[in-house]
Amino acid sequence: MSLYSLSLRRTAILAATISLLSVTIPAHAFADDDARRAILELRAQIKQITDQNQQARLQLADQLETMQSEVTSMRGELEKLRWQQDMDKRSTQDQSGGSHPKVDNPQEQTAFDQPMGLFHSGKYKEAAAAFGGFLKNYPNSQLAAEAQFYQGSSFYASKNFKGAIQELQSLVQANPKDPRAADALLVVAASQIELNNMAGAKSSLQKIVKSYPQTSAAETAKSRLKLLQ
């Protein structure tokens, strides 16, 4: 083969190679672009799914928190109803089964009966103020401890939990043997629970069981201690 023919052949091969490369290189480039595009689209889909899952988890967490809050509120309302029923049952009797103490002074008796009427009518803020007025006017009355108990109970019912604790703890400290002392500690414990003072509530309930074991309040305290464990 002549040098000229060989040169032509090499030129043809080179041209064919260049032509082939001009075809195959863009094809590979397009293939790479498609792959990258598919990867990007997949990543976008994964991110979208992840974001949706995260949003769903947040919504579920919010729903659970709302449900827990509603359950807690319902428990609080149920506890309050139980307490009110208990107070209604106890309000006309002391621990020995007797009725409210009576006094000979009609004016003094009326001054006590008036806030008691407010209490039984569910007007607890007004009752608390009226019992306070009675205690101010008749500090040495035979009805003073009774009035103090119902003032503290009125504070509790009107959600003045700190006032209830202060008033009723004062009653128990001053009159530890009073027929209302155990009941007063029950209301103290209920107020402490409302204030999320579980340790204080347990202490108050344990004091009832230890110091007033023969009272009906002690049985109530035992059942509530089980709930707090």
Rank of each mutant, 00 (worst) to 15 (best):
G117V: 04
A111Y: 01
A38Q: 13
Y138A: 10
M67A: 12
P115G: 09
V71K: 15
G76F: 02
L81F: 10
Q192D: 08
E65L: 04
A218D: 05
A130Q: 11
Q166P: 00
A38K: 13
A147Y: 00
K222L: 00
Q173H: 04
F30K: 05
M87R: 13
K226I: 03
T24E: 01
A147K: 01
R9D: 06
M74S: 14
K89C: 13
G117N: 07
M116Y: 07
F149I: 04
L3V: 09
N175D: 09
E108K: 11
S91P: 05
L171T: 02
L42C: 11
S216V: 05
E65M: 05
L40C: 07
Q114Y: 09
G97C: 11
F149C: 07
E70H: 08
Q52L: 10
A61E: 04
K162M: 06
S211A: 10
E146M: 02
D33E: 11
L64M: 12
S5E: 14
A201H: 02
A199L: 03
N53H: 08
L143Q: 15
S154N: 06
Q48F: 04
Q54V: 07
L195K: 07
N140Y: 13
M74E: 14
S73Q: 12
A189P: 07
L205P: 00
Y124N: 12
T24H: 02
K136G: 08
L205E: 01
T66Y: 06
P115R: 13
V209E: 04
A164K: 00
K125W: 15
A145C: 07
S91D: 15
